[in-house]
């Protein structure tokens, strides 16, 4: 499943009402993504559909560690409300979710801080290249990847992670899978 930036439900795009500016909505898409991840895990979607996987597209990723630290902490105190959630939410995210890197909330000027964030989310394992085409296009694909990444990490983000996640190396043909 792809969880793509945008959409309209009739509800305000925030939990506190309609924002004034588009820029707030753009920034806030990260909080929409957080709400959806919380919902899918808390409702037991991945306990019912154990092979389901989801990609969060164009909503950034640097918010992930802080979000999971809070979500895991709350789960430890409140898990009896959702006892089908048998593991910490972060473990579900690691197994079931991927995130596109471009366009994203990277600050090229702060590689050390960014690396700390990436260290706190299992390295580059969950990151997939996203072009943003035709909206917010990344001109050079390499620019979508943190500048300080090593060659193996770049390869992961630009190719390897997506190959594995989308099973791109399996034989083609509708109905031929599995």
């Amino acid at each position: 499943m792809s969880l793509q930036y945008g959409g309209l439900t009739g509800n305000p795009p925030t939990a506190v009402g309609w924002p004034t500016y588009l820029v707030e909505e753009w920034v806030g898409m990260a909080t929409v993504a957080q709400s959806q991840i919380m919902s899918m895990i808390a409702e037991g979607v991945f306990d019912r559909f154990r092979d389901l996987r989801a990609v969060v597209v164009e909503a950034g990723f640097s918010w992930l560690p802080a979000f999971l630290w809070r979500f895991d902490k709350n789960w430890k105190g409140l898990r009896r409300e959702v006892p089908w959630v048998r593991r910490a939410p972060s473990e579900y995210v690691r197994e079931h979710f991927r995130f596109t890197v471009g366009p994203a909330d990277l600050q090229p000027g702060e590689p050390a801080a960014l690396q700390h964030v990436i260290d706190d989310m299992w390295g580059a394992d969950l990151l997939l290249f996203g072009s943003g085409y035709p909206h917010d296009v990344v001109a050079r694909p390499r620019d979508a990847v943190p500048g300080h990444f090593s060659d193996p990490e770049v390869e992961q983000v630009m190719s390897g992670n997506a190959r594995a996640f989308y099973r791109l190396d399996e034989p083609a043909g509708i109905g031929g899978r599995r």
């Binding site: 439900t9 939990a15 806030g28 909080t31 957080q34 709400s35 808390a42 809070r70 789960w75 409140l78």
Partner: peptide
């Protein structure tokens, strides 16, 4: 007066509680 998350009403207090952090982010942004 709005749903408890930016993606609609949540079913569980767990979501409501952890989700308050997202409302704080929204308010700071605004």
């Amino acid at each position: 007066g709005h749903p408890s998350t930016a993606a609609g009403w949540a079913s569980f207090y767990l979501e409501d509680h952890a989700g308050n952090a997202q409302s704080f982010q929204t308010q700071l942004t605004s």
